[in-house]
Design a protein around this nucleic acid. Structure first.
Length: 771
DNA sequence: GGTTAGGTTTAG
């Protein structure tokens, strides 16, 4: 309250006087004694100090360069608080303004200041120039022993001290008046409940309750009747301590004021209430993590805030994470990047682990004050089940913190010292971001967006009833939607559209073939032949190990060759029923071969696995090389998601009754997560109302060409080229281009610093007469 | 020492 002190020795009346100055002095300022001669200090006070009376000493007033002068009318013994801090209380009275009702003030000094001041003021005598009043005693908690009233002994019209286990609470929220409000229902061993309505303009002055089951100690709570029921309300001097309710946990008070007493005897009370509460209160089970969220659930979430944004007056966006991945697709609230507060890089990094929460109405104001990075507990958060219009089969979750405070709905900031926060922090630190960070995910992939935009009038197209060159394979019941409508709608949704293909990327069609991992969602380029050559050359340096030849489940053939240089080649023929199968059904493993030799072998054998010798067993080559070649198709594994096993594992496949040597089965038994070939393209679609870029991500449905075969087939490449030419061509005017009917879905992505809506074509195929 | 809220889900 007050910044600094100067002791003043008064010659008059034998009473000691103190000057209490709120000048810029630091709290550690030592006590100075000043002599007063004929009512004036011997040493003049600095001229910039201005004297004020007690009425001026109020919260919110600027106390810089002010001082209060008064006579010590009462002083109390120097005592130590529960936390070891020295405390010294005195009462000062402004004798020169004694007609004022509030001419005396109580002052609590803490720490070194208390000690120093006690020495000067005390010295064995103190002067009491006015009677001690009840209110002075009541506001001197350090001097009193408290009595606590059990909840079954409460009567209206009293002010009491009490203990209780929290049975229900509303975290502090901003009331419609001037204060924060918190409603707390307590219960104790008498099984009687008491609901308390607590107000304070200062958030910290309300109990710091984080969980049902917490133990509280209230001082000076007023008991009264309301609607025939007894209730507790804050009264002057209300103070609280809150404790974790877990039996055996450390007893650390969360105090609503800096000054409080806490005795060993009280520790016993806390522990008794903990034990009683834990067996008599239905305390909620283990906390729900994002990964455990189910649709339609109301739950409490402990999380870290990483981004926030104002939406409109009645809603506010919080982006949070708890280190686990929500098992359901959750909504992404569209928001302009410039409106989003938080570390954009981090938000992008964590984009697959964060969820968007909209808080509404009365919660908005408090949400605005939250600091990004802080830890929150959000109470009664609603995981609302939602699905795009007309799409009952596509399910996702929206997170809402609805308006109002019913059921304790709200949120609070947890301090870093909170055990749950400590646990969460260490978990967040342990999260492997690369696992969720997808270098390039399908949902956020981008193929250089077009910068040239074409005005609506330029691409104005008259709707006509000509046949479409593409057809839907599902969703025929959807109505057509104009592109400009789609562009103005929030995501995610699904639409049926009719549009023309103004242009597409990549123009070099072979570049549209990528490798996709369905586990980590990553997309990568198909390695070229040179990469394979290099790996084969490297592995040819390891000579085949004769100890690994002719095993129970394979026969081996070894020979030497001079070309292109001196090498040893080993081929291992995998047996079935202890017999080598005919080449068309036989899987072989090859050591030391060149790419050309291996390609030759793929023409004759069912499949070829390039391997090299280790001490104990054969092993696969680096995963930049195909783990299996079948015909012209090279099968690759995901480096990130595969855990290659020893080749011996193939043995189990060879023992099956009818081994198919399907790539998926070979991959699985070898611990490989196979990559899938996919077409990845960007279509710029126009329909006269707007222009929209949509991604095509397709294995073979759209072109009716398997993506895995295109790179090794001139015929298929020509076919694809012809198809694209029939859909779109820069040589043709837009009016002459055919219509495409497509189903697209919208979704939001954040990449880099911005969030935007993307679109993907699906369940659409090129009409048969076009292909 | 005045108001606020006084437990029981929004409906976005």
């Amino acid at each position: 309250m007050l910044g600094a002190w100067r002791g003043l020795r008064s010659e008059a009346g034998g009473a000691r006087a103190l000057r209490v100055g709120a000048a810029a002095d630091k709290a550690a300022m030592p006590i100075h004694m000043l002599k007063i001669i004929s009512g004036a200090p011997e040493t003049a006070l600095p001229s910039h100090l201005q004297r004020v009376d007690s009425k001026y000493l109020q919260l919110g007033c600027d106390h810089a360069n002010k001082y209060f002068k008064g006579t010590v009318t009462l002083s109390y013994p120097l005592i130590k608080l529960g936390n070891g801090t020295d405390s010294f209380k005195i009462t000062l009275q402004d004798m020169e303004n004694s007609c004022s009702r509030t001419s005396s003030i109580n002052i609590l000094l803490l720490g070194k200041m208390a000690k120093d001041c006690a020495k000067v003021v005390h010295q064995g005598i103190y002067t009491k120039s006015s009677p001690i009043t009840a209110s002075e005693i009541a506001s001197t908690p350090v001097a009193l022993k408290y009595t606590y009233t059990p909840l079954n002994h409460l009567t209206g019209g009293t002010t009491v001290n009490l203990y209780g286990v929290v049975k229900f609470f509303k975290p502090p929220y901003i009331s419609k008046g001037t204060d924060y409000c918190s409603v707390v229902t307590l219960v104790d061993q008498s099984n009687v409940k008491l609901t308390c309505t607590l107000f304070n303009g200062n958030l910290d002055a309300l109990p710091k309750i984080y969980k049902i089951g917490d133990i509280v100690r209230f001082h000076r709570i007023k008991i009264r009747e309301y609607n025939g029921q007894i209730q507790g309300v804050t009264s002057i001097g209300f103070a609280s301590l809150t404790f974790d309710g877990t039996p055996g946990a450390a007893i650390i008070p969360r105090a609503s004021s800096k000054l409080y007493t806490f005795t060993d005897e009280e520790q016993k009370t806390i522990e008794e209430l903990r034990v009683w509460g834990s067996s008599n209160l239905s305390i909620s089970g283990p906390a729900v993590k994002l990964s455990g969220v189910q649709p339609k659930l109301y739950f409490d979430l402990t999380c870290q805030l990483i981004g926030k944004a104002e939406m409109d007056g009645s809603s506010f966006l919080l982006k949070v994470w708890d280190g686990t991945k929500c098992s359901y697709q959750s909504w992404k609230v569209p928001v302009e990047s410039r409106d989003l507060e938080g570390d954009k890089v981090l938000i992008h990094k964590l984009r697959n682990l964060t969820v968007d929460i909209l808080v509404y109405d009365n919660h908005v104001q408090l949400a605005k004050s939250l600091k990004v990075g802080s830890f929150l507990r959000i109470y009664s958060l609603h995981a609302k089940q939602a699905c795009p219009e007309n799409q009952a089969d596509v399910l996702y979750i929206e997170f809402h913190l609805h308006g109002g405070t019913g059921y304790g709905r709200g949120f609070g900031v947890l301090p870093e010292s909170n055990p749950d926060v400590k646990e969460l922090k260490s978990f967040l630190d342990s999260v492997d971001l690369t696992e969720h960070q997808n270098v390039e995910t399908v949902s956020s992939m981008e193929l250089d967006s077009t910068s040239d935009s074409v005005s609506n009038s330029e691409v104005y197209l008259e709707r006509c009833q000509q046949l479409s060159v593409t057809v839907l394979t599902d969703h025929q019941d959807l109505n057509e939607t104009a592109l400009n409508t789609i562009l103005n709608n929030p995501a995610p949704q699904q639409y049926r559209i009719r549009a023309k293909l103004r242009t597409f990327k990549p123009q070099k069609l072979y570049q549209s073939i990528k490798l996709y991992c369905s586990k980590c969602n990553s997309l990568q380029e198909v390695p070229d032949g040179d990469d394979f050559d290099f790996i084969l050359q490297d592995s040819a340096a390891t000579l085949p190990n004769p100890e690994l030849h002719n095993k129970l489940w394979y026969d081996s053939a070894v020979w030497n060759t001079e070309h292109p240089k001196q090498r040893t080649i080993a081929v291992h023929f995998v047996k079935h029923n202890e017999m080598v199968q005919e080449p068309g059904n036989c899987l072989i493993m090859v050591e030391g071969g060149t790419q050309k030799e291996i390609m030759k072998l793929t023409r004759r054998f069912k499949g070829v696995i390039p391997v090299r010798s280790m001490q104990e067993d054969l092993e696969l080559l680096d995963l930049s090389a195909p783990f299996l070649l079948q015909g012209k198709i090279r099968h690759y594994g995901c480096k990130q998601c595969s855990k290659p096993k020893t080749i011996k594992s193939l043995h189990f496949l060879s023992e099956e009754e009818h081994p198919s040597w399907e790539p998926s089965e070979v991959a699985q038994i070898l611990g490989i997560k196979p990559l899938q070939y996919a077409f990845v393209m960007e279509f710029t679609l126009v329909d006269g109302t707007g222009e929209l870029n949509a991604y095509l991500f397709d294995y073979e449905k759209f072109f009716q060409i398997p993506a895995c075969e295109v790179l090794s087939s001139d015929l298929l490449q020509k076919k694809m080229e012809a198809t694209m030419n029939s859909l779109s061509s820069p040589k043709r005017k837009i009016d002459d281009l055919p219509w495409l009917e497509c189903v697209i879905r919208s979704y939001t992505v954040r990449d880099g610093t911005e969030q935007r809506v993307c679109y993907q074509i699906f369940d659409t195929t090129v009409a048969e007469d076009v292909v």
